[in-house]
Computed example of a mutant assay.
Amino acid sequence: MRLGKIDYLNLLPFDVFIKRFPLSWQSKAILAHRKSYPAKLNRDFLFARLDGGFLSSIMAYGKRGMRLPCGIISHGEVWSVLALPKEAKGDYQSASSNALIQVLRIHAEVLIGDRALIYKLKGGEAIDLGKRWLEQKRLPFVFGLFCVSKNKHEAKRIASAFVRSRIRIPWYLLKDASDSRGIHPKDVLSYLQKISYRLGPKEKRGLEVFYRELLFLGIRSPKRFERRRDAISSKSL
């Protein structure tokens, strides 16, 4: 099975989990190789270069059958999805967050992932989109989803085991992640406390509310969203 993974700190617990999970060495090798930012993995999935993995939640918009009960979720502040007080501009690494800022009616620059986390920890001025979503909707926000196009039984086995597991991150992996990104280990652990992975009833409700808002905006697919985002960016120049 060809799985991809968002190469951000928010999936460090999944890295630890998958190393111990009974999966073929070929699948683990592909997963280790297919690490990138969300928008890149979305394209690989659309063009069938991947069978699944952690993708932007917008990828499952209108396609219930491909999503599994596992995602990248915030219940308020997320620290790594920000709106900067700059000219309106999407983040090339993003898909869901570029749509979210439209839903929230915020005119600013989107910054996501480890770059956003570093910006936040340095005290940069920004609106935390996870916090703003909770303030407006009183629901969690699902930034990413574990999605598949085939081998759903095997993928569901992985996702179900992951959300049930209690992950303890070994010090050497925590230190490696810390050193490679220039973030103190304590800040890494504080950040991971902002993230959850189980897609329960409230999380599913938050996801459906997000999809409903996309429908109101006329965003019906990832491809249409990319065209709309490009049009908005060109108008703001």
Rank of each mutant, 00 (worst) to 15 (best):
Q136K: 01
A99C: 05
R105V: 04
D128A: 10
F141Y: 05
L111S: 12
K131N: 13
F143T: 07
A126S: 15
D114A: 09
G113Q: 13
D128N: 11
G113P: 14
I112M: 13
F143E: 07
G123R: 09
R105K: 10
R115V: 12
I118N: 14
L134I: 09
A108L: 04
P140H: 05
F141P: 05
L129E: 08
W133N: 07
V103D: 04
K122P: 13
A99F: 01
V103I: 01
E125L: 12
L134P: 09
I106P: 00
K122Q: 15
R115T: 14
G144T: 03
V142C: 01
E109S: 06
D128I: 07
W133F: 08
W133I: 03
G130F: 07
Q136H: 06
R115D: 13
K120I: 02
E125F: 09
K120H: 15
E135N: 01
L139T: 04
H107T: 07
N98R: 05
W133Q: 06
L117Y: 12
I106M: 01
E109W: 02
H107I: 02
K120Q: 14
I127R: 13
K137C: 01
D114V: 13
L117T: 14
K137S: 01
E109D: 07
D114Y: 11
D128V: 07
P140C: 02
L129P: 08
E135P: 03
G123N: 10
N98E: 00
D114L: 11
N98I: 03
A108S: 09
E109I: 02
I127E: 12
K137T: 05
L121E: 13
I118D: 14
Y119R: 15
G144S: 08
I118A: 15
L100Q: 03
Q102M: 06
F143N: 08
L121R: 14
I127S: 11
Y119F: 15
Q136P: 04
W133C: 05
Y119N: 15
G144I: 04
D128E: 11
L100C: 05
K122N: 15
L134W: 11
L104P: 01
A116H: 14
V110P: 07
